[in-house]
Design a binder for these strands. Structure first.
Lengths: 224, 224
DNA sequence: AATTAACGCTTTGTATACAAAAGGTCAATG
DNA sequence: CATTGACCTTTTGTATACAAAGCGTTAATT
């Protein structure tokens, strides 16, 4: 298997936790490869900022609350712009792709049962498909290049897994607003709706982080 | 020497021209290294988009006119935002850095003699220092991370080398406008001035590209 | 003469071996 | 008892050797 993809997935899925050291030898044994391809994968991840260099080797990057704020600021900027451009440049084909992704998103949300991991994975997938359809419609591949590196970060926190039925419905409604703004070529409306949508996502992640922090504090207390 | 830096510089300075194939063996011989560190450097450059994968190996990426348009759109967005945030978050120390860089920029422009490569390099350097001071003042390292990859591209065309004395003076004036807007914490003014500044840069590069194209057409004609 | 198949050469992908640097441990000394 | 220094282990950095995959060239056949 491709070492780069494997390690990246492992980081996103939390198999390798933030701060954890990534030794070349152990990765090589785990993937049944030699150290050479492992090193190349690590170099790539390093240049994307998913791992940080140590004095020796690398460790999985730890993102602070401040990082999340800043990264989401970046994402609102880029993806808001992408939505506005999509409104200007979208073709019928683009609209079809967005509709399709969002319809499946809706179906998955309606099928959703609380705490069913599989159905959540499905939802996350179709959500991503919708956003990618928009980015693709804005006809600027360089935007996609940068956004793909920005979007990865919050996935590490898997905050989507904490969404309840109400939040999912709300997210779906905003998607529909964005979609119709793009269809109507109302670029400013598309930009604002997308920006707001992503700010809502940020609030979810930050709230999630607070929950985690509380739990940690509780654990610390029990240890005393 | 570090293979990554070396190859990157060589691409920026035009030693390796767009479309040129980068063979591992030949690079290894040139840098007096084995293929292993070369491969790692290439992987990094690939993930930054400076080289593109072939069926076998990589070649120096060729940027079209459309690429330039799109990349500059991205840059106005990011660096305009950076300027607006710098206006909000700047410290006295930040202002000092900007002033210093821009003063040196001004001195270098005043010393400027037409077609003197060394003085142009100096100018390019202080210009970069000024822009970096702003990005640093916006207190969002992630912006810097992405901008540093966006900014590299136009350098490949070395359009700055075509600036005449008038354009340099104008650029200097805009710098001063941006600087005072940031000092006065006028974030919207800073954003707009920076955006305009970068659009002017884009126009320069695109005009430069047109010149190059004309020359190519002339050459083609002489060959017949 | 054109097309295709096969062979050989070039270049990349992977593994391994060796060199060098960093970190940890234990003992000796102040 | 603490601190430092030397040695030993672990891990990374680099080189090289070998395997595999493209690519071009040539020759053979239609």
């Amino acid at each position: 298997m491709d070492a780069y993809k494997y390690i990246k997935e492992a980081i996103i899925h939390g198999k390798y936790e933030p701060g954890m050291r990534l030794g070349e030898e152990s990765l090589a044994k785990e993937l049944k490869l030699s150290r050479t391809p492992i090193r190349e994968a690590i170099k790539q991840l390093e240049s994307e900022g998913l791992v940080t260099p140590l004095k020796r080797g690398v460790s999985v990057r730890h993102f602070t609350r401040e990082d999340i704020q800043q990264i989401y600021d970046l994402r609102t900027l880029l993806e808001g712009y992408a939505a506005s451009q999509a409104a200007l440049h979208r073709t019928d084909e683009d609209i079809k792709m967005m509709k399709e992704a969002n319809d499946r998103y809706e179906e998955a949300i309606n099928r959703y049962k609380e705490a069913d991991l599989n159905s959540i994975k499905e939802i996350v997938n179709f959500n991503q498909q919708f956003h990618e359809a928009i980015i693709s419609a804005c006809k600027n591949p360089h935007i996609y290049f940068h956004l793909s590196k920005v979007v990865v970060v919050p996935l590490v926190f898997r905050s989507f897994y904490w969404y309840d039925a109400f939040e999912l419905k709300r997210s779906l409604e905003v998607h529909k607003t964005i979609l119709s703004a793009i269809q109507n070529q109302d670029s400013e409306r598309a930009r604002v709706a997308m920006t707001e949508h992503i700010y809502q996502g940020r609030d979810q992640v930050l709230a999630h982080l607070e929950e985690i922090k509380k739990i940690h504090v509780l654990k610390e207390d029990t240890h005393d």
